[in-house]
Amino acid sequence: MLVEDIMTRDVETVSPSTNICDALAIMEERRIRHLPVLAGGALVGIVSEGDLKEAQSLVIRDCREGAERRTPVEVVMRRRVFTAHPLDPIEEAALVMYRRRIGCLPVVSGGELVGIVTQTDLIRSLVELMGVNRSSSRLEVQVPDRPGMLAQIAELIRKHGVNISSVLTLPAEEAGEKKLVFRLQTIDLRRIAGDIREAGYRITWPPTLDETR
């Protein structure tokens, strides 16, 4: 998946001269935490909810009713902005945000701001990748680490006419084994789990009534 697949295109922005109280009001109204700052169409900075919290004394002074609004955004904004390109893979965007400990990346193409990608967008993509956007249950099966295992388990699931929302493979704790993690579109895994156990595989989730409790 690419940044352009998950980014928000309709970006709320401010200018360097926007007052900090107005910037705060936009964030509260739109329920967002970051505002790119544009001057003459170019990205010159970014201001976050956190930046405004750090400048709390200015906010308190300016935003009282009837107070003179003296502080423009350019006083509190960050001028060094990390950006993404629409064609960046999302894992790269995630890595930059994680390493730099930042909550969003403005997306710039041809010198213009074309979107913004935030932690929320990344989490939503993760949720979709894991198949949790459709009602489903988790099934974990431990299998020998060799070709054909996924197909065998998938065949047992197919027999029940149950749709697979997603599948992940993970290394298991035991050498020579791996774990297949499915999200299946059913509320009741018992028959499928029964068939898989009968075929000789170990189910690591869900537990049976006697296990683990």
Binding site: G131, V132, R134, S135, S136, S137, R138, R183, T186, I187, W205, P206
Partner: peptide
């Protein structure tokens, strides 16, 4: 938690 159980939300 929906981490494991239906409907996952």
């Amino acid at each position: 938690t929906g981490r494991y159980l239906f409907p996952g939300t």
